[in-house]
Nucleic acid binder design. Structure first.
Lengths: 331, 331
DNA sequence: CTAGATATTGCATACGAATGCAAAATAGTT
DNA sequence: AACTATTTTGCATTCGTATGCAATATCTAG
């Protein structure tokens, strides 16, 4: 029959009460007789009634919508993190609006459309969007930044990765076992997180009075890792390649295998992000990553806070997930 | 300063017109003097005004929201398809609401929350949710099904895969070159798509008076493919393993390599879905898949139709993406 | 310059739910 | 029973935009 959705007034009529009472039945800690509420909720359930979130949002200026701004969900690095976050939001009865920026010529236009829905929060999970643009467009929403663009005093809540210790740990071990020729393969050198990762590595190298031999540029894709590595390994022989993400690291490993370069004996490979597939048998890439779910936990927690509370900045430390793309410690 | 978002009335005051005129400036083909519209749009842009989508939706009973019901976005099989679809929706100024069901104990509850936002369309991209439940919960929305649950006369728009021809093509070639011992590795045997895939394969085998030697059960994950294959290959020697998805196929390939079974010489492996990583150098899995983007194109097209138009059913034929996990044709 | 046709605009109301305030119902007290 | 204290409910308004209808402005032609 597809009844086009009851309204509170119609349900009120059925229940023999006023629409105000219906509303109160659906509002926690409101002044309503428990039996009345029970009766209404039962009736609502029977008729499939749910308060119209549009009307409710309009009235309360609170939508319970969260805009998730990501590059793409096709990529496991974003997908895995996003999935965690979505689950956490859903558990709190928040609805995620998904904005995929990657193949969209005008990201700001996309954000403008989303802002019309008066989202309560915006999670910037992408380096491809500027914090200032987002702040400007989502004026009335609370911005939570999980990209790596420097905050520079902006009063914005944010979750930031710190991989300096983890990176040092990796470099120390590799230098210990005699590696000296490091290459860094960047994803998009304009990206903040990429810059950070590179600079953490150079700092770690500097502690040993070393530096990168070479820096190559990929585009975060498996194919680019593969291609760049083939070119590079045909003309030189680094003993470590550090990649801006795991996908490129996997590409590098496959290229090495094509060229009969042994991993990790001749070449150690290190990735970033800790995507599940980096840990698959066939890949087994050592990677630098936040502890499982830490970022999304922090984000969800921030979103749960009182929106009027001052912005908070969290730092999530990265850990190393050792795998077979780097040599074991000699005993 | 974070002006909390202008309203049409406030902007009207600034522009020296009534709020009705503001509204008309933002409505295509409405009766308004072009210069007035231009003036208002400029002013709106200057002040960052956008019509409140909540109010608009409430008034028009049309939200331009589309609920995307998926299992998870962590998995490339879903992520890649979803990404395509999201881009197509965004290009049409539709906003996707993301519902991830996988780790959510009560999927229906999730859908109920989403339905409160009066989404215009629901795309069921997941086998984990029943069509009837979804129809029941999203009463006033148009359901578009991309799962494989049988429609059985339900008046619902739907995009359905047909892999029978592609599957026959694969089986014919493998039988031609002498393969006789086929194993099917299912993901979740209760899933409709899994059943279909298996039955397409048995039909293709029957044409040669063959049948599956064995059916094993995984859970769609790389690890389950790996584990099941190790167990299986230690006790028997099939020459073809067909997997319900690519991830398990990759796991199977890695297991084979662990056990020194040559792929494709001793064992051919076939996957399903056509995820990008199945085509990576290290994996190179032959896979049965819809033509790139076909499913999301069909979905987007359906969503674009007049909602009062009768439901349509589309069939998307699958193709084979040959790779190195199956032998070349002998010349 | 004016009547009539047409192009623009404003007014008033509707969409569905939340909530302050007042009215009604109930409980508690003497 | 009468009256107060308290709980529960209803009334009326509000949120911001869209739109039918009426009012006004602009244009055309005579």
């Amino acid at each position: 029959m597809r009844s086009k959705g009851l309204t509170s007034v119609q349900l009120a009529k059925l229940a023999g009460v006023s629409s105000a009472t219906i509303s109160r039945a659906f509002t926690a800690d409101s002044l309503i007789k428990p039996e009345t509420r029970a009766r209404i909720l039962a009736l609502a359930d029977e008729h499939g009634y749910r308060p119209n979130a549009m009307a409710r949002s309009l009235n309360m200026s609170q939508s319970r919508l969260v805009a998730l701004v990501v590059n793409t969900v096709a990529n496991p690095a974003e997908g895995e993190g996003l999935d965690q976050l979505v689950h956490r939001l859903q558990a709190r009865e928040r609805m995620p609006l998904l904005l995929c920026c990657a193949n969209h010529e005008d990201r700001n236009q996309l954000m403008r459309i989303a802002s019309a829905y008066r989202v309560d929060h915006v999670v910037l999970y992408s380096d491809a969007v500027s914090i200032d643009d987002a702040t400007d467009i989502f004026r009335s929403a609370t911005l939570v930044v999980a990209s790596s663009e420097p905050l520079e005093g902006r009063a914005v809540s944010d979750v930031r990765l710190d991989a300096s210790a983890a990176t040092r740990q990796v470099v120390d071990r590799l230098v210990d076992i005699g590696r000296r020729h490091f290459v860094y393969l960047s994803g998009r050198s304009s990206s903040h997180i990429d810059k950070q990762r590179m600079s953490w590595f150079s700092e770690a190298l500097e502690a040993h009075s070393l530096a990168f031999d070479i820096v190559e540029h990929g585009d975060y894709s498996y194919d680019s890792g593969y291609k760049e590595a083939v070119l590079l390994l045909r003309r030189s022989r680094p003993d470590v390649i550090v990649c801006a993400n795991d996908l490129m690291a996997i590409g590098v490993k496959d290229a090495a295998s094509l060229l009969n370069i042994r991993v990790p004996e001749d070449l150690a490979i290190v990735g970033h992000d800790g995507v599940a597939l980096a840990n698959w048998e066939a890949h087994s890439i050592t990677t630098i990553m936040p502890l499982e779910g830490m970022v999304s936990a922090a984000l969800a927690e921030i979103i749960d806070r009182d929106p009027s509370a001052p912005a908070v900045q969290r730092v999530v430390d990265c850990v190393v997930r050792w795998a077979r793309s780097t040599p074991e410690l000699p005993r």
